[in-house]
Simulated assay, not measured.
Amino acid sequence: MKVLLVPNYSRPEAMEGASRLAAWLEGEGVELQWAHDKKLFPGRVVSTEGVDLVVSLGGDGTLLRASRIVGYQEIPLLGLSYGHLGFLTAGGPSNMIETVADALAGELHASHRATLDIEVEFELPDGSIESKRSFALNDLSLTHGVRGDMIEFDVAVSGHHIERLRGDGFVVATATGSTGYALAAGGPIVTPEFSGMVCVPVAPHSIRARAFLTAPSDVVEIAISPERHAERLFFSDGQPMDCGPRGVRATVRRGPGDIILLDRSSKSFYQSVSRVFYGENR
C-alpha cells in the first residue's frame, strides 16, 4: 500500500497533522510519499506511480490541488479538513487516524465525481492560434480582465447555438463545482450523482439569460465575439490557464475519468449542504 500526502504547507496545523499521520502510516508499514510545496516548486510534477490512496490535509483548495495531481486516473482521494469550510472533506484533526484507517481498509463510501476536460484556444501577439488543455474537478470560468470591460460571447451545446451573451463571464461546472463559483453566480446546488454540466452566466446584461444543465455526453463551447475587443481570462478550478487576456474559444466536455472522493456515507453531501449553506449543526 502506498499513500500520497498533499498538505497545505501554509497552515502549521495541517503540517502538524500531516507529520502525525505520516508517523502512524510508517508504523503501519505503509509506503509514504509527500507532494511538494507548490509555492516553492511551482513547476514540479508530482508522480502518482504506484499510489493507492491520496490524502489531502487542508481546505477544499488543497483537495482541488490533490485532484489535479490525480487527474483522470481514478485513484481514491480522501480529504481531511484544516480549512474554512471543508465541504469536500471526510474528516478532521479529531478523527484523522480513524478516518485514514477506514479508508485503507476500504470501509468508506466512494463517491464518483464527474470531471471536466477543457481546451482553450488563444491568440498570440502575431495573430496565430494556440491551444491548452486542462483538467478540472470544479469548473471552467470565463471572466473579464482587470479593466472590468463587459465580455461578449456565444454559447453553444453540442453544435446547437444557445445565445450570444454580454456580461462579466460564464461558468461551466460539474455537480461538485455547483457549490462553488457557479452557486455564487446564481446557479443551483446539484447532487454529485448528476454527471452532466452546470452552465451559469455571470452578471449577464439580459433578464433572459438563465442557468441550465446539460447531458453527460454534451460538449459546451464558448466563443468570444470578434466584434467586441475586451480582455477575457479563462480559469480552471480557479487557476489561470496561462493563455493571457486573448482567449478566443473554450470547449468543455466530461473528463475521461472521475475523481473517486471518499466520505462517510452517501448522505455526506446533504449533511455538508445543511452544515455549510443552511447553518445546521454549527
Results as ranks from 00 to 15, higher is better:
59 G>L: 02
95 N>E: 14
73 Q>H: 14
59 G>T: 04
76 P>T: 07
33 Q>T: 11
22 A>D: 08
88 L>H: 09
83 G>Q: 08
100 V>H: 04
45 V>Q: 15
55 V>G: 07
97 I>V: 15
29 G>M: 01
25 L>M: 10
60 D>M: 00
91 G>A: 14
37 D>L: 04
51 V>S: 06
36 H>R: 11
79 G>K: 00
47 S>G: 12
23 A>V: 13
39 K>N: 13
27 G>N: 12
101 A>I: 01
31 E>I: 04
90 A>Y: 05
78 L>I: 04
21 L>C: 10
91 G>I: 09
92 G>T: 04
78 L>A: 02
37 D>C: 06
43 G>F: 06
79 G>V: 00
82 Y>L: 14
90 A>Q: 04
77 L>A: 11
69 I>R: 12
39 K>M: 12
48 T>P: 08
78 L>D: 02
88 L>D: 00
74 E>Y: 00
38 K>C: 09
85 L>R: 10
89 T>W: 01
63 L>S: 05
87 F>E: 06
97 I>A: 12
70 V>I: 15
34 W>L: 02
41 F>G: 00
72 Y>E: 15
65 R>Y: 14
54 V>F: 10
38 K>G: 00
78 L>F: 02
102 D>I: 00
28 E>S: 13
46 V>L: 05
48 T>R: 07
99 T>Y: 11
66 A>C: 10
45 V>E: 15
42 P>Q: 08
84 H>F: 12
98 E>W: 13
47 S>C: 08
95 N>P: 02
62 T>S: 15
48 T>M: 13
77 L>E: 10
64 L>F: 04
99 T>I: 15
28 E>W: 06
29 G>D: 03
99 T>A: 11
83 G>R: 05
31 E>W: 02
79 G>R: 00
38 K>A: 14
91 G>L: 10
64 L>C: 07
24 W>T: 00
89 T>V: 07
46 V>R: 02
53 L>C: 07
92 G>R: 07
100 V>F: 08
75 I>A: 07
82 Y>A: 11
66 A>N: 06
21 L>D: 06
77 L>D: 10
38 K>V: 15
36 H>V: 13
95 N>R: 10
95 N>C: 10
94 S>M: 08
98 E>H: 14
63 L>I: 11
37 D>V: 05
100 V>Y: 05
89 T>M: 12
73 Q>E: 15
71 G>P: 06
59 G>M: 03
72 Y>N: 09
94 S>H: 13
45 V>K: 15
31 E>F: 03
43 G>T: 01
74 E>F: 01
99 T>D: 11
87 F>G: 03
66 A>T: 07
56 S>D: 07
